[in-house]
Each structure stands twice: as structure tokens, then as C-alpha cells.
Design a protein around this nucleic acid. Sequence first.
DNA 1: GGCTCTCCGCGTCAAAGCAA
DNA 2: TTGCTTTGACGCGGAGAGCC
Length: 300
Amino acid sequence: MSKCGRKKYIRTNLRQMTMETIESHQDGRVTDSMAEGGSAHMQTQTGQNSIPTLAQVATIAETDESAESEGVIDSHKRREILSRRPSYRKILNELSSDVHGVVPKIEEEKSEEEGTPPNIATMAVPTSIYQTSTGQYIAIAQGGAIQISNPGSDGVQGLQALTMTNSGAPPPGATLVQYAAQSADGTQQFFVPGSQVVVQAATGDMPTYQIPAPTTGLPQGVVMAASPGSLHSPQQLAEEATRKRELRLMKNREAAKECRRRKKEYVKCLESRVAVLEVQNKKLIEELETLRDICSPKAD
DNA sequence: GGCTCTCCGCGTCAAAGCAA
DNA sequence: TTGCTTTGACGCGGAGAGCC
């Protein structure tokens, strides 16, 4: 069996286990909501049968539990929950609001910490971080110092000197950045926050990029800076499409990492929850046995 | 040492979810 | 409706353990 074959086998088993969990719930209190879908498979909006996810199972379990404790269930709400794809963050945060102290809350975006390239994280806290089309990171500190790091290098090794000029008559609030392009084609593009997108290049051997202070009301977020000049030629359009794709892939790469981290945290929380409930269950069984002994003494 | 198995993380794609 | 985010699924490669 190949690697992928084995993985698929494991996944299939996981799905099977999940299905069994769902089916066991069909005998219980959530049967009405499950019956709406017609089967244990979730009915998606596109009409496809999809396998319920771990999170959905957890949601069902959570709903089941709350039904037991509160006795009142909004079936419509449950159907709504079951029909949606879950968000680990949301589920975990909801759990944490229900069970304080047991389930740690997933923190919102730690942008300062997680969004910072590893090579820059150990240096002075920058106010802006840009990425060039070649993967280099450019950090602009509050003092105006600019640092460039290569993604492959470690720490300060990737730093490159950068020349800043304020000569001439720059527009108010603008800082002129001169960066000697070292790529083969001599082109450099920056990814800059949306509120700071104005990039201007001078013709000649040394391209000049202008990054004014954020004065616009544009939403924050990393936006790829368009190369100077018009984008009307097919080649430029193709380059723009390529840049957009690279940006999308980069974002999705980071999103996937974050999603996996959340999923791991979510699974850990579920495991700890299981442990707590098992202990509770054991205690209740012992209590029940004790009460039985008291209420029905042996007739000797 | 080489081989196989198993686990893990990553990058990518596609589709669902969601907010404006 | 649209654009962005989130997440399941897939394939790949690396690492560690066990076996020969």
C-alpha cells in the first residue's frame, strides 16, 4: 500500500468513526434535526452529501449535552448550526464562554507576533513590514530605520543596507526610499499595507519607491503594490495576474497554517473535555452505587 | 545500511462561510 | 453579488522507529 493509500485508509476509517458517532446520536435527542437532513450525511447547500466533520460532531455533542441540562432546545437553531461548516475558533470560543476555565479561548489574530516574518521578529518592533516580489522582507521601524531580510537566511544575516533620502522636495509626510534592485530583471515590487499604497518608480538604474504616510481611509491589510506605469500591455496584465496569484497563495499558505494550529488546539480542548467528563461520569456512577446500597440494603 | 511503516507538517486547490 | 476567509481534501517529503 502506498503512502497516500494508507493515508486515505486512515481518513476513511476516521470518517467511518465519525459516522458511527453521528448515527449513535440519531437514537437520541438530536434525531429530529438529523432527520431533517434525511440521513446521517450532512446535506450541503449544493445538494451534495458531505461527511460531518469533527467539529460538527462536537457541536452535536454540545447541543445534546445542553439539551439534557436545559431541557429546552431550539431545533431551528440546531439545524442552522448543523448545516454550517464549523469554525474552530468560533466553536472553541463558544465552548470557552460556556465552560470557563476548562476550555482555553483561542486568541484573536496576534498580528504583531504571528504576522511578523521570523527574521525580523527578533529585531526592533517595526511599524511596517513589506515583502518584495523576491520574498525579501522590508521592515520600517518607528525611527525610520529600514531593514531588509531574506526569507532563507537566519536572523541578521539577511539584512541589507538601505538608503533613505529626503532630499529634494518630497510631498508632506512622504519618505523617499531608494533601494538598489538586485534581481536579474532589476524589478522590485513591494507588498505594502493598504493604507500606504502609493509606489512610484524612477527610471534609471536605481528604482525609487515612494511610500507616503498613511493618510487615507483605506482598510488595513496587505495589498500588493502595482508596478509603476500603466498596466495595459498583455505582459503587464500577465505580471499583475501572477502577482495576484502569488499574493493569494501566500495568504492561503498562512491561513492554512493558522487553521491547522486552531484545529490542533481545538482537538486538545476536546480531549481535555473528554477527560473531565469521564471523571465526572465515574464520580456519578460511584455516587449512584452508594445511594443504591443505602436505599436497598441486602436482605440477610 | 537499507527498507518499510507511520506520523506529521506543508502547500495547494476547491468549496463553504461570511461580511460588506 | 462579490471578494475575502476558513477549512476539508489531496499529494508530497521529511523524520523517527522497527525490522532484516
